[in-house]
């Protein structure tokens, strides 16, 4: 292999070129965001800022703070509850199969691919009838439409565990819930991290459900940012700063827990 290695250094040229391509939007966000109001000009958008100023971030935060809070309020229960449900479902489908379990599974999976335009009219009608509105309704939608992928991830993980693990516990007299609580739950932490990150990211980044189920007092961040970008009053430099604020929570999760993020990503193509 060593003989090839020297010959492969040229690969850094295309790799670095691609790295530049992926970083361009980030560069524009950061360079623009840190310019002072006086320095901002579309004609110099590619120039580095002369110093570090926070004008844009302060202005963007003033507009977006309430919706950042709304996003957190909605995303945290949505991620926790759909992960918990997914874990229980995955446990039953992988280890305690009842008759018909294998028939149900593809029907569960189909739910993660449907275009939400095909259910959104009944969803709005239904939420009105049962009286669950705003952020609670949005969280509920994310919990329910998140069940397929959380179930899939946990089912694949539990199916990979040896059956003997469960048999031993059963011989010791543990019942079904005992097996789940004392054997599976403690070793499920990595899968929980994967699923929680996935649900956090997709609920945080969602726009369609958010724009239809919430009104202007409870807009989450994606809707607020899109409205800010569409308004003529708010300058583009403030929009750039707002984009960073909107992206930061999921970006930080990605930077610190990228390995788990990748596993969730692969699960989304049914390859988990």
């Amino acid at each position: 292999m060593n003989k090839f290695r020297i010959g492969k250094n040229w690969l850094y040229v295309p790799l670095i070129a691609m790295a530049v391509f992926y970083l361009i939007p980030m560069y524009v966000i950061l360079a623009t965001g840190f310019k002072s109001f006086a320095e901002v000009d579309l004609k110099t958008m590619w120039n580095l800022p002369h110093g570090i100023a926070f004008d844009n971030y302060i202005e963007a935060f003033k507009h977006l703070a309430p919706s950042l809070k709304n996003s957190f309020i909605m995303v945290i229960p949505a991620a926790l509850i759909s992960s918990m449900l997914g874990s229980l479902n995955g446990f039953v489908l992988a280890k305690w199969k009842f008759r018909g379990a294998d028939i149900i599974f593809p029907f569960i999976l189909f739910g993660m691919f449907i275009p939400y335009q095909s259910i959104i009219i009944p969803l709005v009608q239904f939420m009105n009838v049962i009286g669950i509105k705003g952020l609670a309704g949005l969280a509920m939608a994310h919990i329910i439409y998140g069940i397929p992928i959380t179930t899939l991830t946990f089912r694949n993980y539990y199916a990979s565990l040896p059956q003997e693990l469960l048999e031993a516990a059963k011989i010791d007299g543990a019942d079904m819930l005992g097996v789940y609580r004392h054997i599976l739950l403690p070793i499920s932490i990595p899968s929980f991290v994967v699923v929680l990150i996935w649900q956090f990211t997709s609920a945080w980044n969602d726009f369609l459900f958010a724009v239809i189920l919430t009104g202007n007092t409870d807009w989450p961040i994606t809707v607020a940012l899109n409205n800010m970008a569409g308004s003529q009053i708010i300058a583009w430099n403030v929009q750039m700063a707002g984009s960073l604020l909107a992206a930061l929570p999921t970006l930080l999760v990605y930077i610190f827990l990228g390995r788990y993020f990748l596993r969730g990503l692969l699960a989304g193509s049914l390859k988990g």
Partner: peptide
Amino acid sequence: LFPMAISYI
């Protein structure tokens, strides 16, 4: 991979 973590918006 990092663009995958941010929203389409």
